[in-house]
């Protein structure tokens, strides 16, 4: 085991600045992950040329792969940085910001577009109000629960969006993660009351038919959410909605 960790970071000072690569060498420590490595680096931000530079800017929070903050491209693959252990990574380790979202600085990107998409597909269960109405939601079988729980763990981390060839700054495609959420709420016993609204939001340009069925999303998801299953089911739902719309006109 080498006693240094060699790191190559694709940096960018501002959204409109040119990116550049900077190399670093850090002392090896057992059980380092990519975020803890960046934390060690900010304590002593000296590059491989021996120059003291501004610490690398990155986003992280939970450190246990549940908040979705620290997504970045590590050795060419999009991942959660906190749960990517240094042992087992080929060196030099390359870190790049996601390419599908605007860079704010260094590894920090702005994923607002994903959150806007959640709004567009109305990814919530409409309720009369956040007060007690003295009854529960309808019963849900353990089997349906398991299907829904798979999708309710989506952290909006963006790995699937990064991996999707159809999703990029120049495309209107809404992307796999919001589609998964649209399916989740359509599958809820009262969420389905507004299924039509969600389906209508997914028809037309940027909607579900823009999915190219590359299936990269499901492979990139750190939670192994069955995104392609949801997209397939949503595809059928939108088709029948379209027919329904035509005949009810």
């Amino acid at each position: 085991m080498s006693d240094v960790i060699r790191l190559k970071v694709k940096r960018q000072d501002r959204p409109d600045a040119e990116p550049y690569w900077e190399e670093f060498a850090l002392p090896w420590k057992p059980r380092h992950n990519v975020v803890s490595l960046l934390m060690a680096l900010r304590e002593n931000p000296v590059n491989a040329k021996g120059e003291r530079v501004a610490p690398v800017v990155f986003e992280a929070n939970c450190m246990e792969e549940v908040c979705g903050s620290c997504t970045m491209i590590i050795n060419g693959k999009v991942k959660q940085a906190c749960s990517t252990l240094i042992e087992g990574l080929q060196q030099p380790i390359t870190l790049e910001p996601m390419t599908k979202f605007p860079v704010v600085r260094d590894l920090l990107v702005d994923r607002q577009r994903m959150f806007d998409a959640l709004r567009k597909v109305r990814a919530w269960v409409p309720i009369d109000g956040a007060w007690d109405i003295h009854v529960h939601a309808p019963r849900i079988s353990p089997r349906e629960w398991e299907l829904n729980y798979d999708f309710s763990r989506c952290m909006t981390c963006g790995c699937c969006m990064e991996a999707c060839p159809q999703y990029h700054p120049g495309s209107q495609f809404i992307g796999p993660s919001p589609l998964g959420q649209a399916w989740l709420f359509n599958n809820h016993p009262t969420g389905k009351f507004s299924a039509e609204d969600r389906l209508h939001a997914l028809m037309g340009p940027g909607g579900i038919t823009d999915c190219g069925n590359a299936q990269n999303c499901v492979r990139a998801c750190p939670k192994e959410i069955k995104l392609t299953d949801a997209i397939a089911k949503l595809g059928r739902q939108t088709t029948s909605q379209m027919l329904k719309d035509i005949f009810s006109r």
Binding site: I127, A130, W131, D132, H136, A137, W145, S152, F185, T190
Partner: peptide
């Protein structure tokens, strides 16, 4: 119950 109605799994 309110959380349940919001769709918590």
């Amino acid at each position: 119950r309110t959380f349940d109605r919001m769709g918590v799994t």
